[in-house]
Design a protein around this nucleic acid. Structure first.
Length: 594
RNA sequence: GGGGUUGUAGUUCAGCUGGUUAGAACGCCUGCCUGUCACGCAGGAGGUCGCGAGUUCGAAUCUCGUCAACCCCGCCA
């Protein structure tokens, strides 16, 4: 077989190449056979170019071209020529030229592909995942995967030039309490014992700081065995970073620099600095969640005091039981029918709310609601003022536990913003969410759990509560939120042994357990651990937003389904009894009969 | 673990209130065609209606179960 070198990429040719003899290699995007002339659109990573097979120019090539089909891999050699008048295709960047083929070689044939690769139809995701290598051949996916690669490249060069060292940490490591469920790997040489795949390189990067590497980063795979969502995969990638002798302000600053650079280079967008910051408690109050979408208003307000003045048992009862009443002013829905309001109520119920109270303010300022009768004169006016509502708005209220109210109103807020077209898709709104509480009480487990992770330092001002009321403690932590999606988070870590002990104690981890699970860290803290902190960026989520994708699956070459199956390789799968025996494992669940 | 949407030709879908032989577009196959680029023209093949029960004289259609994909709650940073 003649082994001629490729001279150009298909999509790279332009009118300046006129007259050149080129050799191209790529896939047959389409073939238009006119009996005499045959036109082939030849495609590679860079794009598409039309090649022309004319029996008068290359008779044998023309013969071969009659047998080629879509997705055949071919090599053509021929001359680049300006297209004749009236045959220019403005839809193609290469549309002013074409290649007259002298020689054509079929490098490989292709079966008819199971779905069109031209983006003309929305193919089911199951089909795309089964034939992922074909799905990835589509230009849309090529762009997304290439966009991700560019993002990684920008991040790497930024961090490299800022003194960060790329250091790898183990994949086979130790299961730790707290956090997500671990993926476990059985040990062959230690019967009955298991490694865990890392949920993140958290402890290792802290140890690297203790080793004195000062600045570390890693594009790190992380594993969490929890149920999936559009923005959650069982294995995902973090840009993991850690820095010594840096305050949270300094870390935030360098991260802003990185994000600004990324958006400039990838999107050509200038993001103004400094990014806004909001305290965690304020985010929860005003947006109902710790990852606020700040591209639009519809802010939430607390109206407990005013709601308590109404003779409305739903509100009174909730407030008596320690719950809250909060609301927001929604524009443009006074025309909603009873049924529309019921549908809106259903949205609130998704997050556990029992009902949704509403008061329409008509254009003339009159209140229209089933519950106006419970409010003494003037109270609704005060509520209207508190919510910043205008005539024509509808005030929506939830009354329940704080968790339910926050989650419900956050959902309503997003739902309405989407429906009313309040979200500007071209916007990129960053916000730092800072100072979250360290602990959350889990009534079902009757214990405190760490909101971030148990190595996050407690702010000096709130340390006094650590042993009395841990929920009152705040952490020196910061999440970076982009358009309502958390794309990263970090904190200043604990570098003092005594504080770490206290935090473990607050979490109900006794000394023995702490020594068993984290002994290496506790000991390391006693050998000159420097003050340090860091952050991890969710690379998949960032790539998702930068490429305008609906799901992180679109920016992961080989993702898993919602059940964590790989439809292409068919994993997870059975293993042989011998493999199990080597690992001293015995399945406890019998496979289902087919 | 739970709620919702979907599942019909290779693909994307239509198929009403159960009724004779389940359709369309694209794709595929054969032939014709020297300026197409969503090529065109003529002809053709292609179906276990996700799977399993049930109701019925009769099920793509109704009921129950089950499997899968997606969205969400719980879970998860």
């Amino acid at each position: 077989m003649a082994d001629i070198k490729r001279t150009h990429n298909c999509g790279a040719l332009r009118i300046g190449n006129d007259g050149a003899t080129v050799t191209l290699k790529g896939w047959v995007d389409s073939r238009r056979d006119h009996g005499g002339l045959i036109f082939v659109d030849l495609r590679d990573r860079e794009g598409i170019i039309q090649v022309v097979l004319n029996p008068e120019i290359g008779q044998i090539a023309h013969q071969h071209a009659r047998d080629i089909r879509s997705e055949y891999v071919i090599e053509v050699t021929g001359k680049v020529s300006v297209r004749p008048d009236g045959t220019v295709n403005d839809n193609l960047p290469t549309g002013k030229i074409e290649v007259y083929v002298d020689e054509l070689l079929v490098l490989n044939r292709s079966k008819t592909v199971p779905f069109p690769l031209d983006g003309s139809e929305d193919i089911s995701e199951a089909m795309r995942l089964k034939y992922r290598y074909l799905d990835l051949r589509r230009s849309e996916m090529q762009k997304k995967i290439a966009g991700r690669a560019k993002l990684v490249s920008i991040i790497r060069s930024f961090l490299d030039s800022n003194g960060f060292l790329d250091i790898e940490t183990p994949m086979l490591t130790k299961s730790t309490p707290e956090g997500a469920r671990d993926y476990l790997v059985p040990s062959r040489v230690a019967p009955g014992k298991f490694y865990a795949l890392p949920q993140s390189p958290q402890l290792f990067k802290q140890l690297l700081m203790i080793s004195g590497f000062d600045r570390y980063y890693q594009i790190a795979k992380c594993f969490r065995d929890e149920d999936l969502r559009a923005d959650r995969q069982p294995e995902f990638t973090q840009v993991d970073m850690e820095m010594s002798f840096m305050s949270s302000d300094e870390i935030i600053e360098i991260m802003e620099e990185l994000f600004v650079l990324v958006f400039k280079e990838v999107k050509g967008v200038d993001i103004p600095r400094p990014f806004p910051r909001i305290k965690w408690h304020d985010a929860m109050l005003r947006y109902g969640k710790d990852a606020p979408d700040t591209r639009f208003g519809l802010l939430i307000s607390d109206v407990c005091d005013l709601a308590n003045q109404a003779e409305f048992n739903v509100f009174k009862g909730v407030l008596k039981n320690g719950g809250v009443v909060r609301g927001l002013a929604a524009p443009g829905i006074t025309g909603y029918s009873r049924k529309d309001m019921d549908n809106l109520t259903e949205e609130a119920k998704i997050h556990g709310a029992k009902g949704l109270a509403w008061v329409k303010i008509m254009e003339d300022g009159a209140y229209n609601s089933p519950i106006t009768k419970f409010f003494p004169d003037g109270v609704l006016d005060k509520i209207k003022e508190r919510l910043g509502a205008k005539d024509g708005d509808t005030m929506l209220f939830l009354a329940d536990s704080e968790d339910v109210v926050c989650a419900g109103l956050a959902h309503i807020r997003l739902h309405l913003a989407g429906k009313q077209g309040l979200i500007d898709d071209s916007k990129f709104d960053f916000v730092w969410v800072t100072d979250p509480p360290a602990f959350e009480y889990k009534p079902e487990d009757k214990r405190y759990v760490a909101i971030h992770h148990p190595f996050t330092t407690i702010t000096k001002e709130t340390r006094e509560h650590l042993e009395t009321d841990p929920t009152k403690t705040l952490t020196d932590a910061y999440d970076i939120v982009l358009n309502g999606t958390e794309v990263g988070g970090g904190s200043i870590r604990i570098h003092e042994r005594e504080l770490q002990d206290k935090v473990f104690r607050a979490l109900g981890i006794d000394e023995d357990e702490a020594r068993e699970k984290f002994g290496f860290l506790l000991e390391a803290l006693e050998y000159g651990a420097p003050p340090h902190g860091g952050i991890a960026i969710g690379l998949d989520r960032l790539a998702m937003i930068l490429t305008g994708s609906e799901s992180i699956r679109d920016v992961i070459a080989f993702p898993k389904t919602q059940k964590a199956f790989d439809l292409m390789v068919d994993a997870p799968s059975d293993v042989s009894p011998i493999q199990l025996r080597d690992l001293y494992l015995k399945p406890t669940i019998k496979p289902k009969k087919d």
